[in-house]
Computed example of a mutant assay.
Amino acid sequence: MPPLCAEHVHVSLRQCPFLRRTEHTLLRVRKPHIHGPSGTLYRLTDHGWHTSQEDVLTPYDKPQHPALLASRLHLELRHVTVVDAP
């Protein structure tokens, strides 16, 4: 899901196996906002380290989890419009 220009959309649609197998929608995002990472939360207890069973999200503007092993970065998409493939 890296950003790409309209000129190179056809290359991604042709070369990406996932995009060839599924339907997709092209979006133009005017203001992407990095929200924060999610991943496995580690907590140190008297009996050692314990991990979360579910992914935990910690927004950058309110960090709550200092021992987080991040696996995803979440973006908030603002000012979005659907566009046709060139």
Rank of each mutant, 00 (worst) to 15 (best):
P3Y: 05
P3E: 11
L4S: 14
C5S: 15
C5G: 13
C5D: 15
C5Y: 09
A6E: 14
E7C: 15
E7S: 11
E7Y: 07
H10K: 14
H10A: 14
H10Y: 14
V11Q: 01
V11P: 00
L13M: 13
L13F: 05
Q15R: 10
P17M: 04
P17R: 09
F18S: 12
F18A: 15
R20C: 13
R20P: 06
T22F: 05
T22W: 09
E23K: 15
E23C: 11
E23W: 05
H24A: 13
H24L: 07
H24R: 07
T25F: 02
L26H: 08
L26E: 12
L27A: 07
R28G: 06
R28H: 11
V29P: 06
V29D: 05
R30Q: 13
K31M: 10
P32E: 11
P32R: 10
P32C: 09
H33L: 06
H33C: 10
I34E: 06
H35N: 04
G36D: 03
P37H: 03
G39E: 07
T40N: 01
Y42A: 14
R43E: 14
R43N: 03
D46W: 05
H47Q: 14
G48F: 01
W49G: 05
H50I: 15
H50L: 06
T51E: 02
S52P: 02
S52D: 06
Q53C: 03
L57P: 00
T58R: 00
T58D: 00
Y60R: 02
D61K: 02
P63F: 00
Q64L: 07
Q64H: 01
H65L: 04
H65D: 02
P66M: 09
A67Q: 11
L68T: 01
L68W: 03
L68E: 00
L69S: 06
S71L: 07
R72T: 13
L73P: 08
L73V: 15
H74S: 03
L75N: 03
E76S: 07
L77Y: 01
H79W: 06
H79G: 09
V83H: 11
